[in-house]
Write a protein that binds this DNA or RNA. Structure first.
Lengths: 235, 235
DNA sequence: AAGTGGTCTAGACCACTGA
DNA sequence: CAGTGGTCTAGACCACTTG
């Protein structure tokens, strides 16, 4: 293929194939031309064609079946991406409180420790325009040799706290979104009526062996707004 | 590098580098050895090393800066993946109703059509163990030449409906998760008390020009359970 | 047996970054 | 300037699928 512009050859091939898929000329399940045929058609080599196909594969448009060929994928319209940043803009407007408590049965079970084990409890109230919109609770098992948590807690973003104990790529998070009534404790701190319905974000920080090393629960009042998620393909 | 097992060379290199990152020996922001140095160290070629690095890059562990080198990324602990399947298991237990209505102001605005335009409204109640757990509403602009929707509606999964009009890769979805009180209409159909708090999933089906071609609203009662999301890295 | 994708080699030229 | 990653070539051998 002639290089008429500064655009890499493989990107041109990628775009042509992608457009055929997006337009529906190549439907899910149908097979693509083979690497050799594409290489011949575009007057280039297999490796360059493979680069195009790998980009298509990563973008979710196609998959390969060794010995057979490349096929157009079924689009994953059920997979969403949700960005959840922890109160980055709310630093000043959030009030915090740190206490050391006994885990208790519920938290102890979640964290895989005894009910009488010591646990840091970190509480924040998130305000917006002078109104309390969320109530955040974090639970972290206490360990000897832990850095003075009170000092570090200024950066009470969850991943950062956990990162003090584990390398940052050594853990992952599971999140659940549910519905509850506001607890008395939270209602009191937010100065609103108890039993008010709220969305709840449950967060589990897990190490590589799926052991829970941190648990968070966050009440979101209606005024917090909606959580947003996206599904789709990069065009 | 000697091939002692059937494992590809690039996978071995990938795993070694990945383990160093996961263990924290290579921290976010630090630079990796250059392609040439890795090629020499593993007694292979640049192209093979590049394959390893590309896998690492796709997995989110590193990024490249042309002219400088490869660097360890900051882990994205704030990006979650949420799978939301539409009631696939509930086929038999869901009741449906299809009507054609005038869009009205709210729906008309969302769909970018006039308030008096015709719109299909598709309603389903989702049951589980004899109890209504969710109430689903979908709105789709009526168009001439549309296939008989009543017939197609047996497959009333949203992406499939939209696919009748557009190729399956030509649209994407935005979703929002919020909190509301149950509408009278929904409470009536589900035989529960009106004003009951529920989670709400708002879904917007958008074409490549961000025009809304379908809108959905789904009430989830507490008994529906929690939505689940994950963030993390493949090890 | 012929065709497919998966892996790998040993070069090449380019644009870019930093000393 | 030397070093880096980005692109590209023209081959090669392998395991797998299909007729």
């Amino acid at each position: 293929m002639k290089k008429t512009t500064g655009e890499p050859v493989y990107q041109g091939i990628y775009k042509e194939l992608r457009n055929q898929i997006v337009k529906g000329e190549l439907k899910p399940g149908s097979i693509l031309p083979s690497e050799n045929e594409l290489a011949a058609r575009y007057e280039t080599t297999r490796m360059t064609v493979r680069k195009s196909l790998q980009v298509l594969e990563h973008s979710g448009f196609i998959y390969s079946w060794p010995g057979k060929g490349y096929y157009v994928s079924e689009p994953k319209h059920h997979t969403f991406t949700l960005e959840f940043q922890e109160d980055e803009s709310a630093e000043q407007s959030s009030f915090r409180e740190i206490t050391m408590i006994r885990a208790g049965k519920e938290i102890g079970t979640l964290l895989g420790i005894g009910a009488s084990a010591r646990v840091w409890k970190i509480v924040r109230v998130i305000y917006q325009d002078g109104e309390a919109i969320a109530y955040d609770m974090k639970y972290i098992p206490y360990q000897k040799g832990m850095p003075t948590l009170e000092k570090e807690i200024n950066y009470a973003i969850f991943p950062d706290i956990v990162s003090n104990q584990l390398p940052p790529f050594a853990f992952h998070t599971k999140m659940e979104i549910g519905l509850e009534a506001l607890s008395e404790e939270a209602a009191l701190a937010m100065k609103c009526s108890t039993q008010e319905p709220v969305m709840v974000l449950y967060r589990y920080f897990l190490d590589d062996k799926e052991r829970c090393i941190g648990y968070g629960k966050k009440y979101l009042r209606k005024s917090y707004g909606r959580l947003k998620a996206q599904s789709g393909y990069l065009l």
